[in-house]
Design a protein around this nucleic acid. Structure first.
Lengths: 231, 231
DNA sequence: TATATTTGTGTAAAATAAACACGAAAGCAA
DNA sequence: TTGCTTTCGTGTTTATTTTACACAAATATA
């Protein structure tokens, strides 16, 4: 390692956390953005985020911000990447540890954001211009989400606790941007035996769909034994 | 996002980069560790690393340290994770952005480390006690390596430019900790048509093996067209 | 020149993935 | 209440992929 840690005077960048919050509205994958109320980039849209507080690790910081933004307490969150290029923030040397989160929009309290800032959902194909390097960050996040969706059961995080198979399929189709065969999709999902029947969804036109719950416990048990989720 | 970035006084942790450097010696996967010459954890083994310098992004910091450590200029490096738990470093609030690197040990200049510190390769099943939270970091790195090896052509980074199929297979077996069928392994690798014949390896007992080079350019072209590497 | 060692090859069986069409259950309108 | 529209749910056949498995060829060495 050569120069040891104490032989350089440690320099101290500012450290922020930002969150890429994905939601799904039965049709499109969306991302939650906030309109900045202050400089720099005042008036621009940006990923929610803020500086890390003393005594807090980066995940705690991300959870705090996400909670403030959506009112949600439990949600899927995962570290995405740390961005540290010089010049990414005009205020100086700012490193941002970015998390991405998947939330069920039905469970989110509407307009939970606490202050003057506007928060809005945007479909990925109609994004506004973004502040800082957030457009780049978002690209990385989408790529990661696409990559993970097929090999980890994270899609369920975007749906209500009880969901139908057509909903689940629509989610996969929206995120992965592909058409899937209904019968083959069902076959694959059901063969994993990770869904349990919750009831029926009525009140809508057409034959009512069966609703299911994802059995996370069973998934974790199977994973221990070498099971691999794959869609 | 609620509290905007300027409404909190930004606190400033120290930011370090550490590197998990993997090597392969035709038999075992190994990791490069250094013996710390100073407190804290003086005398303990640790991942090579150091504090980030002003004007440098985290990847540059990691590359600098890796270069100092191994004498290598070009190598595979990828961000692993950012560790930020309170108490992970007794000197105070230190966030570490960790990279992992795959190197070909033959190309590495022996003992290139520049100062008094000892650097040594350790097989993963005979590790010494590690400083800080480095044991945990190493676990994360190994898991990531295992996960990536099957879906990205990163194994070649651990081998010399010209390698044989038995070598490649041994690498997969060592990292993934499985036995692979020779014929099926060859079939799968060759069916991707990403290897080109380089020559023959003689001088050893037994039938001489054909040596190959990995065609990175072709891989990248194919990837553009939706090709997916998988072993 | 015989022996030990390592490389390199093909085929058959099993498992998985892909393609594909229609009846059933509900809401809604006439 | 009946018929029309909409959406859900199901099975089989074919193609593709994966698995299992054994012996001859090429070299170094004794």
């Amino acid at each position: 390692m050569a120069n040891d840690q104490l032989s350089n005077k440690p320099s101290r960048p500012m450290v922020a956390t930002d969150c890429v919050i994905f939601g799904f509205d039965d049709k499109d994958l969306k991302v939650l953005l906030v309109e900045r109320g202050i400089e720099p980039f005042k008036g621009s849209w940006a990923l929610p985020g803020g500086f890390l507080r003393e005594g807090e690790n980066t995940e705690q910081g991300a959870r705090r911000e996400l909670m403030e933004e959506t009112g949600l307490k439990d949600f899927f969150i995962e570290q995405l990447y740390t961005f540290s290029d010089a010049g990414r923030d005009p205020r100086g040397w700012v490193i941002s540890v970015v998390y991405f989160s998947l939330i069920n929009r039905n469970a989110m309290s509407p307009e939970a954001g606490d202050d003057a800032e506007r928060a809005e959902w945007f479909a990925l194909d109609s994004l506004p211009a973004l502040a800082f390097d957030h457009a780049h960050i978002l690209e990385v996040a989408v790529a990661r989400l696409k990559g993970k969706l097929r090999y980890q059961p994270i899609g369920f995080e975007l749906l209500p606790q009880e969901f139908t198979l057509p909903q689940l399929q629509a989610l996969y189709e929206a995120v992965l941007q592909v058409q899937l065969d209904k019968r083959n999709f069902r076959k694959k999902i059901m063969s994993m035996e990770l869904l349990e029947i919750a009831g029926k969804r009525g009140g809508t036109v057409g034959k009512p769909a069966t609703t299911y719950r994802f059995n996370k416990q069973k998934y974790e048990d199977l994973t221990q034994k070498g099971f691999n989720f794959e869609v």
